[in-house]
């Protein structure tokens, strides 16, 4: 089992995608309520790769060189598009993304870039920052 670092700062920037949870149409209909049980696509929720030991063992952000704080269900982050001005509060309601699958991936806007996938948003949260069809956007994260 991997040992997450005890107390280090969360990164300032990240790539972010979106995921569905709770009641949903199509292939999302079996998504369920996420690791915390209460995730909903229509709420401002997010997934974080270090919500528990079991979660961390799957997502392994350390393989991409990212040391992330343990943030459990209910924690709130404040996030915005790297090139945007809208900041929203999102609540941790799931484990994810699987960071280690995408090590080194980079997303840029206006000459500014974010590397690695460290957070995912529900469609409601993502669409406050960007377009779902973009798939991935660069964001800043603060607690």
């Amino acid at each position: 089992m991997a040992s997450p670092p005890a107390e280090v700062m969360a990164p300032a920037t990240s790539e972010a995608s979106w995921f569905c949870c709770g009641p949903a149409f199509g292939p999302c209909s079996s998504a369920g309520g996420g690791a915390c049980g209460t995730c909903k696509s229509a709420s401002l929720h997010c997934a974080w790769p270090n919500t528990s030991d079991a979660c961390y063992d799957i997502t392994r952000p350390d393989k991409c060189g990212d040391d992330l704080l343990r943030r459990t269900c209910g924690h709130q982050f404040f996030v915005k598009h790297l090139c945007g001005t809208t900041e929203i509060a999102v609540t941790v309601r799931d484990c994810g993304p699987q960071t280690d699958l995408w090590c080194g991936e980079k997303r840029c806007c206006s000459g500014k870039c974010a590397t690695n996938r460290l957070i995912d948003f529900t469609p409601a949260a993502f669409t406050r920052l960007g377009s779902l069809s973009a798939g991935i956007i660069p964001v800043t994260i603060r607690s």
Binding site: F25, S43, G84, T86, I88, P123, A124, R128, S133
Partner: peptide, 27 residues
């Protein structure tokens, strides 16, 4: 353009499990 249709300066904070009133999902 979808990438720029969301550029209004804004700050949003809802109750953690509240449904976003300005969003809809369904068929």
């Amino acid at each position: 353009a979808p990438e720029t249709a969301f550029a209004q300066e804004d700050n949003w904070m809802l109750e953690p499990d509240a449904i976003d009133p300005d969003f809809a999902e369904g068929r």
